[in-house]
Design a protein around this nucleic acid. Structure first.
Length: 573
RNA sequence: CGGAGCGUAGCGCAGUUUGGUAGCGCACCUGCCUUGGGAGCAGGGGGUCGCAGGUUCAAGUCUUGCCGCUCCGACCA
């Protein structure tokens, strides 16, 4: 593609409202423009990037046996009533009415539509397994859209749905998708990790998220030092393998702790480490008040607690709700004499001399032994893991690192098939529910994540498989017939090699071309100019390392191919 | 939802305190000149100052309401 005939409106400055680097660079590189909050138009170069991502996803999905379909964005409310999500989905579901006053929504995901489709198509176990997917626009009315393409309201997603006759089949479908996802992200040249994710009510290890590693990621993941275990922070297991403490012989007593609403303040006043204090967190779990106990230097993992009590909604209680169960206030709630279900974190088994709130203002209890002094319903893993915690699978210690969720594979089980009555006849002529799985990849988010992971102060560094153009070819000397002829020749060669090339033939000064090439991020830059030609060379730059090379015009094609292989190898390709 | 800020040319911003001719840089157009890291000179086009109302001889500036956008926070006892 000749730059002069293309449209790439690069900007020197990023728009004021862009906060994260991928957003700034996508706008500066002329790939996207914002229409309104969380909603973007893709310019030609942006579309190319999306296509690069989609192509890889399509190829691997097809290879894995999935079939591409295309479902509507506008969905009738009755389907959502059937699945129960019309009530449950909340405000992220954008709802509206048509002229006949019928309710519709814009699809934030397509379980309902696909289940309704396939329950009408699949009659027999012989028709399964089947996996259908689409690449399509989704709409989620996010509370706070931000970070450009990272968390938009309208975005492009690949979503696949598998249908199987039984659990074993569904597990197999899941496995196939998991492998396909590994292939997809490996092929893209991204540094990524599959991590165990929270799978809510379904349980088991049947949910994995695929994370692109980047310091700017919104998610935190825990990875074992030996690499065998990786999990989303929400899910990462905290273990306690120490001994159980014996019953204490010291009776607890009350101490006065005025003006101590925080663990930190209590520590300071009583001169004890936070690890000796246990905080009592009260939650409203679907209307029931429950207490969670964790050490003062730990944090409650609300997802774990939610799963433990089987709640749909879990929120910290309000001051009024506290008044209903404890005479204390925030800072002085404690488990002794507390008349709600109390769950304690596993590691609290290891102690019998805790400091807790006294359930009266400005007072704490010391020397508390929960087994003796409180009524604990269960000791479970309730806390968030921390850097350095032991790996739950014996893989050393856990390290916390950041990532961007770009893919999610999930075993749905019978959730939708039961709710929406999606049945088939098994080999015994008996009706069975289909066992489902769902598998998503945020196509537009992959583009943003690739940039978050790969950029520098000058611009984007696209991994070759995702780059809108693999090569930026700069002709610095468009008035020299010799240079033009040489540049044209190299352009032809590159295209014949299957390398998509952005040929900068504009009547611009060299500086402009260099800056634009760096900003746009093609992995390879080739420079044709009078100076080099006089010396019989073409200059080449590896955008990943910014290293410069001289490729001799003698045997140029071979020289180039060899060098290109090195550049690709640098990307792990 | 709560809190803060912003809205002036395509982009980045000044001007609002103290009401009095609509500005700067980039980008764009014309010409000259220039060509190895976002050149220079000269000339030029482009604005309902977010919208609506109010005060005033006069409103980008004061005032009221609305709209939009951005950021922060989502409560660890």
């Amino acid at each position: 593609m000749r730059f002069s005939q293309y449209y790439i409106p690069t900007l020197k400055e990023a728009p004021a409202d862009a906060e994260v680097v991928s957003h700034k660079l996508l706008v500066r590189a002329g790939m996207i423009r914002k229409l309104t909050s969380g909603i973007y138009t893709y310019l030609p170069l942006g579309v190319r990037a999306l296509e690069r991502v989609s192509r890889i996803v399509r190829e691997e999905m097809n290879k894995a046996g999935a079939l591409e379909i295309f479902m509507p964005t506008v969905q009738p409310s009755d389907l959502w009533e059937e699945s129960g999500r019309w009530q449950k989905y909340g405000k992220e579901l954008l709802r509206f009415k048509d002229r006949n006053d019928r309710d519709y929504c814009l699809g934030p995901t397509h379980e309902e539509v696909v289940t309704s489709l396939l329950r009408g198509e699949i009659r027999s176990y012989r028709q399964m397994p089947i996996n259908v997917y689409q690449i399509q626009t989704k709409f989620r009315d996010e509370i706070r859209p931000r970070f450009g393409l990272m968390r938009g309201r309208e975005f492009i997603m690949k979503d696949a749905y598998s249908f199987d006759r039984d659990n074993a089949g569904a597990d197999k479908s899941y496995e196939i998708m998991y492998r396909a996802y590994e292939n997809i992200f490996r092929r893209m040249g991204l540094k990524f990790r599959a991590v165990e994710a929270d799978s809510g009510a379904i349980g088991g290890n049947f949910s994995h998220e695929f994370m692109v590693l980047a310091d700017t990621g919104e998610d935190v993941i825990a990875v074992a030092t030996d690499g065998t275990y990786a999990a989303n922070l929400e899910r990462a297991e905290a273990t306690y393998s120490g001994p159980e403490a014996p019953l204490s012989e010291t009776a607890y007593e009350e101490v006065s702790t005025p003006d101590c609403p925080t663990v930190e303040a209590v520590c300071k006043l009583l001169n004890v480490p936070a690890a000796q204090i246990v905080k009592t967190m009260l939650y409203n779990a679907d209307g029931e008040i429950v207490a969670a106990l964790v050490r003062g230097d730990r944090e409650v993992n609300e997802i774990k607690l939610k799963n433990l009590v089987g709640a749909v909604e879990l929120n910290l209680v309000t001051a009024e709700e506290i008044a209903g169960v404890s005479a204390g206030n925030i800072g002085s709630i404690g488990p002794v004499g507390l008349n709600v279900r109390i769950f304690a974190d596993l590691e609290l088994l290891g102690g019998n001399d805790w400091i807790v709130g006294a359930n009266k203002p400005d007072a704490h209890l010391i020397h508390v032994d929960f087994k003796r002094d409180a009524k604990i319903e269960a000791y479970k893993d309730l806390r968030q893991v921390q850097e350095g915690d032991p790996c739950p699978r014996g893989g050393g210690k856990l390290t916390l690192t950041r990532g961007i969720e770009v893919g999610h594979v999930f075993k749905l089980g019978l959730k939708y098939s039961e709710a929406m009555n999606a049945k088939f006849l098994d080999e015994n002529g008996k009706e069975q529910f289909m066992v489902m799985g769902s598998y998503g990849i945020g196509i537009s988010r992959v583009v943003a994540a690739a940039i978050e992971q790969n950029h520098d102060e000058f611009g984007i560094k696209f991994p070759p498989p995702l780059a809108p153009f693999q090569v930026s070819l700069l002709n610095l000397d468009i008035r020299s017939e010799k240079a033009v002829a040489k540049a044209d020749e190299i352009y032809e060669f590159l295209e014949s090699e299957g390398l998509e090339t952005l040929y900068d033939d504009r009547d611009e000064r060299p500086g402009v071309k260099f800056k634009d090439a760096d900003l746009l991020g093609s992995p390879i830059q080739l420079v044709v100019g009078g100076k080099g030609l006089d010396r019989g060379i073409i200059e080449a730059k590896d955008r990943r390392t910014n290293e410069k090379f001289e490729l001799s015009l003698e045997n140029f094609k071979e020289n180039f191919k060899k060098w290109q292989a090195d550049v690709w190898a640098g990307w792990g390709l």
